[in-house]
């Protein structure tokens, strides 16, 4: 009863609980929070001592790899699912409070959380309980590719096939959607994190130099490419030389990064090809005519659409504002629940 009363004063939220970033969409307001899914935990009095949250989000991400002994900056989600239940709950609690900052009552919103389609029941339950523990009144779970498709503005309710490829931080989801339902979906544990890791490994192997995750991400964003282009871009990078043990700077170019990313990219292409093989012919024809829509942070990798065009022979387009597609789609799904009831989608 009291929760319902508090609910009147709370906004409905759609949360894209991603490996790399957590986005919150508030109904009628848009994306109100976009922060890295990173939590810094302070543990005083040695191991086994009391743990407290030192920072969450952007602040915590700045600490990643730069923390003293008593602070650990961790990413509570791994491969799209919860790796540390308690920390995830705390992080969600922090974000929900931040969204409702300055409110008189403790918020108790209805929350829709997007989950990878390949996640297990246990993983889904963990996400549901985390959200409930963070103060949510009702928790709905929606599969990420469905949310991404809605957020990208694809005609999901039509009797025609639409293919969406959502490349997130931890997972890549590919799905064929028709009539508000997922006809085929697959999830591969390849994402932005694996791209970073591939760059770190490449640099260590070829330059004998160790770089951090943040540097790798920066390299990926600046000169990363999925398909050889006309222009070769260069970037100066600093890392610790393994042989000398001292920091050294060197120059990387986009072709090297392209080479470094070959493995994860071929994994994504293979997933798309499998999806096309598994799609029923009528829907396959629709997909061939309209093309594949790319969403998620991974879609921002330069020339990824070109790679998919060349590899699959189908048109590939990048959705508008691909980073926020999932969260926006979740928000739209919440609106659709109110308009048409929960029968519109298969919620859990």
């Amino acid at each position: 009863m009291f929760e319902r009363l508090r609910g009147i004063f709370s906004n409905d939220l759609s949360i894209d609980l991603g490996t790399a970033n957590t986005l919150i969409y508030v109904r009628g307001k848009g994306i109100v929070l976009d922060e890295p899914s990173v939590v810094a935990i302070r543990q005083d009095k040695g191991p086994g001592g009391p743990r407290s949250i030192a920072a969450v989000g952007v602040e915590a991400k700045r600490m990643l790899g730069r923390t003293p002994g008593n602070i650990t900056a961790i990413r509570p989600l791994k491969d799209g699912v919860i790796a540390d239940f308690t920390v995830t709950e705390k992080m969600l609690q922090h974000f929900i409070r931040k969204v409702h900052e300055g409110r008189f009552l403790k918020p108790s919103p209805r929350v829709l959380v997007c989950v990878p389609c390949g996640s297990t029941q246990v993983e889904r339950r963990a996400i549901r309980e985390s959200a409930a523990g963070a103060g949510a009144r009702d928790v709905f779970l929606i599969e990420e590719p469905m949310a991404a498709a809605i957020g990208a503005g694809m005609p999901v309710d039509e009797a025609s096939g639409s293919m969406v490829l959502d490349i997130g931080g931890g997972t890549t989801e590919v799905a064929v959607i028709s009539l508000n339902g997922i006809v085929y979906s697959a999830s591969v544990r390849i994402g932005g994190d694996l791209f970073d890791e591939a760059i770190v490994n490449y640099v260590r192997r070829n330059y004998g130099t160790l770089i951090g995750e943040s540097t790798a991400e920066k390299i990926k964003k600046e000169i990363g490419s999925a398909y050889p282009g006309n222009e070769v871009r260069e970037m100066e990078v600093r890392g610790r030389n393994l042989a000398e043990g001292v920091p050294r700077s060197f120059t990387l170019n986009s072709n090297e990064i392209l080479e470094a990313l070959q493995d994860p990219l071929s994994g994504i292409v293979a997933a798309v090809k499998t999806a096309l093989e598994q799609t029923p012919p009528e829907l396959g024809a629709d997909v061939a005519e309209r093309g594949i829509v790319l969403t998620g942070g991974g879609a921002l990798l330069r020339d990824l659409d070109r790679l998919l065009i060349e590899e699959t022979g189908l048109p590939a387009i990048i959705a508008e504002d691909p980073l926020t597609c999932v969260a926006r789609g979740g928000g739209r799904a919440l609106e659709m629940i109110d308009e048409k009831g929960t029968d519109v989608f298969t919620f859990e």
């Binding site: 508030v26 307001k29 848009g30 994306i31 109100v32 929070l33 504002d321």
Partner: peptide, 9 residues
């Protein structure tokens, strides 16, 4: 559907 990133009103 697209709304820009902004602070909570």
């Amino acid at each position: 559907l697209v709304k820009t990133l902004g602070a909570v009103e």
